[in-house]
Design a protein around this nucleic acid. Structure first.
Length: 260
DNA sequence: ATGGTAGTGTTACTA
């Protein structure tokens, strides 16, 4: 199975590129983030015509997550137990959707950005990751052989080399010790990040602003954590940097994982 | 010249 995660940054404006990518890459299961639409606005016909079923969750123009699959789609779950809410009034945002595809439970995750270190969104981000980690640990404790993929836009750069210049991130989110600890806690919970070993020096995101992509100033913030049973079946990973090029590109590249 | 974008939807917010 070829599993891809991609923050598409609006599925409505990107649908032609996404369908072309599916066909070009041979992706069987696509986890998408930042749909930026409600369910009735999702371009379902394009996916159906391409041979994919889609489960999605979207509340408004922000966030939104989906799993598209051509190898089956069962047991769809919206959000996870204990998932924090945000805003006034408090809302359970559309940031997590799970579905089982050909024996692999795929979670499409859009981790809160955090905004600024002293912003409530930052505390929300840490709590969101902590709660997800606790549920993820429970899932493998209950079923040690279960194949679980936690994929998406984690909005954390776990290493200094995952940003172009640490000096530019002084006092900024994505690189702080608490965020990195929250990310690394998934490894302590038994999951293995399976993309870095195959693509050791690569970014997955380049801001639209300040010519970040042409200048090679990116970040590595999209990852795939695998449960032990799944990690043992992973045979490779790639980052499709070509997809970031040209007019109409998302600011994130697709991250591809191959599973035996 | 030291900035530069993009998407949704509206006089802003998010990233």
């Amino acid at each position: 199975m070829r599993l891809t995660t991609w923050n598409v940054n609006s599925i409505r404006t990107r649908v032609d590129r996404v369908i072309a990518f599916l066909e070009r890459s041979g992706t069987d299961v696509l986890a998408m983030q930042e749909l930026k639409c409600k369910p009735e606005q999702f371009p379902m016909q394009a996916f159906t015509d391409a041979g994919y079923e889609v489960a999605l969750h979207g509340l408004n123009q922000w966030n939104g997550v989906a799993v598209a699959s051509r190898v089956g789609l069962e047991d769809v779950q919206i959000g996870f137990g204990g998932m924090p809410s945000f805003g006034e009034p408090l809302v359970e945002e559309a940031r997590a959707l799970g579905a089982t595809c050909d024996g692999v439970t795929v979670w499409s995750l859009y981790v809160p950005n955090g905004r600024e270190i002293d912003h409530p969104h930052y505390a929300y981000k840490l709590e969101w990751l902590d709660q997800l980690k606790d549920r993820a640990a429970e899932w493998i404790a209950a079923e040690p052989e279960k194949k679980i993929a936690l994929v998406g836009d984690w909005n954390v750069a776990p290493r200094d080399t995952d940003v172009w210049d640490m000096a530019a991130f002084e006092g900024k989110t994505h690189v702080t010790a608490p965020e990195r600890a929250a990310f690394n806690a998934f490894a302590d919970a038994g999951y293995a990040e399976v993309t870095r070993q195959f693509t050791p020096d690569a970014y997955t995101y380049w801001d639209y602003q300040k010519l970040r992509f042409p200048k090679g100033e990116g970040m590595r913030i999209d990852f795939a954590y695998a449960s032990p049973a799944l990690a043992a079946a992973v045979t490779g990973a790639q980052i499709d940097r070509e997809e970031r090029k040209g007019k109409g590109a998302s600011d994130h590249a697709p991250v591809i994982v191959d599973i035996a």
